[in-house]
Design a protein around this nucleic acid. Structure first.
Length: 689
DNA sequence: CCATCTACTTAGAAGCCCGATT
DNA sequence: AATCGGGCTTCTAAGTAGATGG
């Protein structure tokens, strides 16, 4: 096979694969001094046995990482494709080793039967036994229709572990087979024809390599197959998808989220993920487990295939599942965000955060006290809680050597924290998605002292900062303080608490969501000023914590802002008129009836309204909703607000705010969000978080 | 215990659509 | 008409957290 020729010529992967493996693992498991807590009465600290384990499990392997490196790494040709992957030298880390083993033993492993509640464990139903001819397909989509919108949030739900009673669906959609395009690879100026499989992978590679890699060995000319010219029209495709889009859960038609099986591709890890570039193989029906009601018809697998297995586990929410070959992770098919199931758990999440509001004062008192605890474990725990609470750090589960080196609170290493007397701390580490968290801040004096202690002596920069703490110990403790409390609730709580909607930007900054700045930002300062004004108006107490909010942007006076916005009104009127004329012109041309004048008048009236409220704002420092929208959009350019908006801020806060000030919902939530938050839309204007 | 497995939320990137602009 | 760019959707990686089992 011609592709093997290129194996060691390595035009594709050479450069990068070295990058990938450079950080050479060192397996010294330096058992560091662990100072035995002098006092360990610890009624609570039964989990104290941690004291006897070597300090650092995880040894740092790689130098800090730039995204750019990762990008390049992404270009690596999947080695697994060309040769059996020789796997990394044995490591101290058992996790890694066994995962590697697993990877070598390919898809043989059957997806395991979820062994949840005994009651739900059912004998496997083999796919073929329920093979039925087509017809009934699509039934799911139509059957459930017309039962109206189910307002689940008005129902009282018990907290039982059963997620549903009946469930029907049509399974999952597989990507189309690979269609060879026949475009040869050009290597050393020679055309090399690849067999279909090799060609497919080469094509994955070309797709990744496309773009910013100037001197890439794969010439654009060799880049094959524009994605058009596919078989099947757009309409046909939609028709095929249709039956997968919905399921029938407890008799209601619910939208399914990711009903498509992930197509084969090169694994695209974020940051310096050691497995970036490996081949993610095509998933066969035989690897897929279907979860479905036990009285429901099992969907037909694609012709000539059978499902891996079929379960009827109603304690879980997934409809299908398979195991992905690169990392051995399980992939699930869930319902869409707007479904009642998701809505319910979303609401529970915010209720929990709201609950925290009631006891957070106590909790803070408690950990402040514990900052001076005699037990090292408790002291570390308290310090971690402080950081999580104050700086929205994530919990920080341990990670393996076969993953990108990123950390959260519990997994911080000494090197991630710099201390400057008397109480300044500088954080610098890669967090989730390898996004850099950098922050300099003043902390509580005792926190500072503690951090100093945790960094002490025999510890090296690569050692764990909180060597006596892990996420499960932390969460166990939190449970005791409030049922259901875990580290991540603090993010929700703090975001929601901060979130008079205008505080959105603050939240996003706090949670360190970033987005690249886009160009064309003329009036940035003005927007900033507007936002700050509003923020302070809506939450005057922010001034204490963020004095910079009170600083004026140079040259941006209130009246300047006012005339600026009034000018936009004039412009918008002009625009509206023009568009109206243009539209009518078109309609006339097509022989259709023209738009009524009232249409235009409506729009103009809206602009008048806006103008009025600008004037009002000038008097009252209140901004009208359209402007707010504008400001938000601009702020969005620098901070990924959407994330906090979607995940952290209790939507009822925004809904209530809108109602209170007569702002329409769609200024705040787009269609998808309104659907997702349907449960929140009915609160009153005086609802409080 | 502790590592691994499972299930679910959170997240940024890529893709797509559509209207404005050249 | 072609291109640009913003907003939304889709995709799937990367977290959290609790259960499980050796």
């Amino acid at each position: 096979m011609s592709s093997s020729d290129s194996d060691d010529g390595v035009p594709l992967s050479a450069r990068v694969s070295t990058d990938i493996n450079n950080g050479k693992p060192n397996d010294d498991d330096v058992p560091l001094s662990r100072r035995r807590p002098a006092v360990s009465s610890g009624a609570s600290d039964s989990s104290d046995s941690e004291s006897d384990q070597p300090l650092s499990k995880k040894v740092k392997v790689e130098t800090p990482v730039k995204k750019a490196v990762a990008k390049r790494a992404a270009a690596a040709m999947p080695k697994s494709n060309t040769k059996p992957k020789p796997k990394p030298e044995p490591k101290a880390n058992g996790k890694t080793r066994s995962r590697v083993l697993k990877r070598r033993r390919p898809e043989v492993s059957k997806p395991k039967q979820p062994a949840k509640s005994v009651a739900n464990r059912k004998p496997l139903i083999k796919a073929e036994s329920s093979m039925v001819e087509s017809s009934a397909d699509g039934s799911v989509a139509s059957e459930g229709e017309g039962e109206g919108d189910y307002k689940w949030w008005l129902d009282e739900k018990d907290g039982s572990s059963e997620k549903w009673h009946t469930l029907e669906h049509n399974g999952v959609m597989f990507p189309p087979d690979y269609v060879p395009h026949g475009v040869p690879l050009i290597y050393r100026k020679k055309e090399i024809r690849l067999v279909s499989e090799a060609e497919e992978v080469a094509t994955f590679f070309a797709a990744v390599v496309d773009g910013d890699h100037g001197n890439n060995p794969v010439q654009p000319s060799a880049r094959p197959c524009p994605r058009k010219k596919r078989s099947g029209s757009k309409l046909e495709k939609q028709a095929i998808e249709e039956k997968f889009k919905f399921c029938l859960m407890d008799g209601r038609r619910e939208k399914v989220g990711n009903f498509r099986i992930e197509p084969p591709d090169l694994f695209r890890g974020r940051g310096a993920h050691p497995k970036t570039g490996m081949l993610k193989k095509r998933v066969l029906p035989e690897q897929v487990t279907i979860n479905i009601g036990k009285d429901a018809k099992v969907p037909d697998p694609p012709a000539g295939h059978r499902w891996g297995s079929v379960t009827h586990d109603n304690t879980v929410t997934w409809l299908a599942m398979w195991k992905e070959n690169v990392n051995g992770n399980i992939k699930y098919v869930f319902l869409a965000a707007g479904s009642s199931l998701k809505g319910q758990s979303d609401m529970r999440k915010f209720e929990k955060a709201r609950n925290l509001k009631g006891c957070v004062a106590d909790i803070r008192r408690q950990y402040t006290k514990d900052l001076r605890s005699e037990t090292m474990a408790a002291r570390q725990r308290a310090t971690a809680m402080y950081l999580i609470d104050r700086y929205a750090l994530r919990a920080g589960n341990e990670k393996g050597d076969d993953e990108a080196d990123t950390v959260g609170c519990c997994s911080l290493r000494v090197e991630h924290v710099q201390l400057f007397p008397p109480r300044t701390v500088h954080f610098d580490f890669l967090g989730k998605d390898s996004i850099r968290y950098q922050r300099t801040t003043e902390v509580d004096q005792q926190v500072w002292k503690n951090l100093k202690i945790f960094q002490k002596k025999p510890k090296t920069p690569e050692d764990m900062l909180f060597d006596r703490l892990n996420t499960s110990a932390l969460n166990k403790h939190l449970q005791k303080l409030m049922p259901g409390l875990t580290a991540k609730v603090f993010r929700t709580y703090n975001a929601s608490f901060l979130a008079y909607n205008r505080a959105n930007r603050e939240v996003a900054v706090l949670c360190n969501h970033q987005r690249s700045v886009s160009k064309g930002f003329e009036t940035q300062m003005a927007k900033r000023q507007l936002l700050k004004d509003h923020l302070l108006w809506v939450a005057p107490d922010l001034k204490k914590k963020h004095p910079e909010l009170a600083e004026k942007e140079p040259g941006v006076t209130k009246s300047w802002i006012k005339s600026h916005w009034l000018a936009t009104c004039e412009l918008d009127r002009e625009k509206a008129r023009k568009k109206f004329e243009r539209d009518n012109e078109k309609l006339k041309g097509a022989g259709e009836p023209e738009l009524p004048q009232s249409k235009l008048d409506e729009q103009l009236a809206a602009i008048d309204e806006r103008e009025k409220s600008i004037n009002r704002w000038h008097l009252t420092a209140r901004i009208n909703n359209i402007e707010i929208d504008k400001i938000e959009k601009d702020e969005n350019k620098t901070t990924a607000l959407s994330t906090s908006k979607i995940n952290y801020i209790d939507p009822r806060i925004s809904v209530a705010w809108c109602k209170k000030y007569g702002v329409s919902q769609d200024k705040i939530f787009n269609k998808a969000l309104r659907e997702k938050f349907n449960w929140a839309m009915e609160v009153d204007g005086d609802w409080t978080f």
